[in-house]
């Protein structure tokens, strides 16, 4: 009897993890795809954490004012684009370090979002619709786990599209060339700096959308504690995924599951270690980073111009 009930608990825990993975992974997915594009161009943007928070705020604000969550998504992407352009331009100045600018943009983006978002803490904005895939089952837990947000399939399609585009399109090749060997790109007549600025801008656009997911779907409201390092973990995730968009998507799901561990255990009645389980994604990131990085050796698949890898 006790065995059976234990089995049910494990089963529903796994279901909660699966559902949580699909729910929590979307911001990871969008930020990591954006960062993947930026890093392919040979730059790293650590400021995406700030972009994520700012996107969450602006997306929520516009969705509240216009009544349309889709306009909110667009506004979040647009503001992320602007922050990306800002990062891209600043790093194009001589003697300016992209990692340092990223840290500054992280603090700037969050500060600005908190300032402008003060009046948005109370109002309720419309949220994004979800797709119900579990209608075939009478089990409410399965239905709940399979209720996914519309951005997740969009992101997964985008991941495959990006992987294809990196290899098969002209701009994909130009992007990778600029990121791997700036001198060669220049010799072939590609404008290195504009390509990098564009790549950072597109990266910011996607990260902004990831932020809008936080405020418009899950948790689905705007407050100052909305993001705690998701943007930064997504940057680390790109390295773990070896700059491959499809592997970014898989890693994002893994991180989502880790992020869902705390709430899932809590719903099972485990409350004592709540804070520690919430730290699981950070610990997972650290472990994965130390497994995929290794001193002295270069990282397979790393863009050659990336300051993060060969300093």
């Amino acid at each position: 009897m006790s065995d059976a009930s234990g089995g049910i608990a494990v089963g529903s825990l796994l279901l909660a993890l699966l559902g949580g993975a699909m729910r929590v992974s979307t911001p990871f997915l969008f930020v990591s795809l954006g960062e993947c594009i930026t890093e392919k161009s040979g730059r790293i943007n650590l400021g995406l954490e700030g972009t994520l928070v700012f996107g969450a705020m602006s997306g929520y604000g516009v969705a509240y004012l216009t009544g349309s969550p889709w306009l909110g998504i667009l506004a979040a992407g647009g503001s992320g684009l602007l922050l990306g352009v800002m990062h891209g331009l600043l790093c194009s100045l001589p003697r300016v370090n992209d990692i340092a600018v990223g840290i500054a943009m992280m603090l700037f983006g969050t500060g600005l979002a908190f300032f402008l978002g003060k009046p948005l803490i109370q109002p309720v904005a419309p949220t994004l619709p979800s797709l119900v895939l579990g209608g075939w089952s009478s089990n409410t837990q399965i239905q709940e786990a399979l209720r996914i947000n519309v951005l997740l399939p969009i992101g997964i399609v985008l991941a495959f599209a990006l992987r294809w585009a990196f290899v098969h399109t002209r701009w994909g090749l130009a992007l990778r060339l600029v990121g791997d060997n700036a001198a060669a790109a220049r010799a072939l007549g590609y404008p290195v700096i504009p390509v990098r600025i564009a790549a950072t801008a597109v990266g910011g656009f996607l990260a902004g959308i990831g932020g809008a997911f936080l405020s418009l779907y899950y948790p689905g409201s705007w407050n100052e504690g909305l993001s705690s390092g998701q943007g930064l973990m997504a940057v680390a995730l790109v390295i773990f995924a070896r700059w491959d968009p499809v592997r970014c998507a898989l890693a994002a799901l893994l991180f989502g599951a880790a992020g869902a561990l705390g709430p899932a255990l809590q719903s099972q009645g485990m409350t004592s270690g709540y804070y520690l389980f919430n730290a699981a994604p950070y610990v997972l990131t650290l472990i994965l980073m130390s497994m995929s990085w290794s001193s002295g050796r270069s990282l397979a698949g790393a863009p050659g111009e990336l300051s993060l890898v060969n300093r």
């Binding site: 705690s228 680390a236 390295i239 804070y275 980073m289 990085w293 290794s294």
Partner: peptide, 20 residues
């Protein structure tokens, strides 16, 4: 030891520290 970027790891450790 592992070549892990210290900027990212130190910020992750700050979040872990807050959780602990």
């Amino acid at each position: 030891k592992r070549g892990v970027n210290e900027t990212i790891s130190s910020l992750l450790l700050a979040y872990i520290g807050a959780a602990v």
